[in-house]
């Protein structure tokens, strides 16, 4: 993309403006055009998904138009009447909400221990915590499945939830944020007689709100989009989450793309709403992980 702009710089110009200024303007216009076209190309699959979901009968033989000829909600009606789709959406909302709340709690408490409580072996324990980030979920799937079956947790919400309760990423993120909070604030509170619980709750947590927001968005997104573990542990159709149900839809309605795309739209919308609302925290969160 950038190389297209470099070529224009050396092009000779015959305009009245100074050649350099004119070249700079051309370059700028060209860059804007390329970037907007690129953004449209990136956005197009979303648009096409939306259009297909409103074009009844989209299947093997027909392709939707850029603007649907005869838009209708048939696909959505079919989705909610033939599959327990409302239940699936509710499952995803429930699991993502619980995961987010629990992860905020376990990450914040652990981060406080690693940031504020000197205890023997702290560096080693933190190292072990970080190492768990490198273990691929795939290695854990078989033993986790066996473990959960032994305790009767297969095909239960709790079974889907438990492995998401603590995540090293969140602990790392919040510890970084807590290390930025001046210890003098703790000390001032301690002089006033505050113990660790009060310092944690009234001094440290209010000062790391942006990091908590970032973690909340990532934890919710991680749960909302997670696939492998819910696929393995949730067996009954009425317990399935959105990604698993969508993957199943594809097999069920191989020729009815409008139904599959309607399901995709429903899966994207809540994340899109959160993203529009918390874009700053999402992008800042990603940018910070790269700068650590």
């Amino acid at each position: 993309m950038a190389d297209a702009t470099t070529d224009t710089r050396t092009e000779p110009t015959t305009a009245r403006r100074s050649p350099a200024a004119r070249a700079a303007l051309t370059r700028s216009v060209l860059l804007h055009v390329v970037m907007v076209l690129g953004a449209l190309a990136m956005f197009f699959p979303f648009y096409w998904t939306l259009v297909a979901s409103f074009s009844p009968g989209t299947g093997l033989s027909s392709t939707p138009r850029i603007v649907p000829d005869d838009p209708g909600l048939d696909a959505y009606v079919q989705l909610f009447s033939e599959v327990p789709f409302a239940r699936v959406v509710a499952n995803s909302v429930l699991l993502a909400t619980v995961t987010t709340l629990v992860q905020l709690f376990t990450s914040a408490t652990a981060a406080y221990a690693f940031s504020r409580l000197p205890f023997p072996g702290r560096t080693i324990v933190f190292g072990v915590y970080l190492a768990t980030m490198m273990i691929p979920l795939q290695v854990l799937v078989v033993p986790l499945f066996a473990e959960f079956r032994a305790f009767g947790l297969v095909d239960t919400y709790l079974g889907a939830l438990l492995p998401t309760f603590a995540a090293a990423f969140g602990i790392f993120l919040l510890r970084q944020a807590m290390n930025q909070v001046p210890v003098e604030l703790d000390e001032a509170a301690a002089i006033d007689g505050a113990g660790h619980f009060r310092i944690f709750w009234t001094v440290v947590l209010p000062n790391i709100r942006p990091a908590l927001a970032t973690l909340a968005v990532f934890a919710f997104m991680g749960s909302w989009n997670s696939f492998l573990w819910p696929l393995v542990v949730l067996r009954s159709p009425e317990l399935q989450t959105l990604p698993v149900a969508l993957a199943g839809l594809q097999g069920q309605y191989t020729t009815e793309w409008d139904v599959v795309m309607a399901g995709s739209v429903i899966s994207i919308l809540p994340m899109l709403a959160i993203y529009l609302f918390a874009q700053k925290y999402v992008i800042q969160g990603v940018a910070n992980t790269g700068l650590k």
């Binding site: 956005f43 699959p45 096409w48 998904t49 990604p243 795309m261 995709s264 994207i268 994340m271 993203y275």
Partner: peptide, 17 residues
Amino acid sequence: FLPVITSWIVVALVWRW
């Protein structure tokens, strides 16, 4: 950045289409 927040399953289904 928009596709980053989308689930892999949706991405796969949309691209399959």
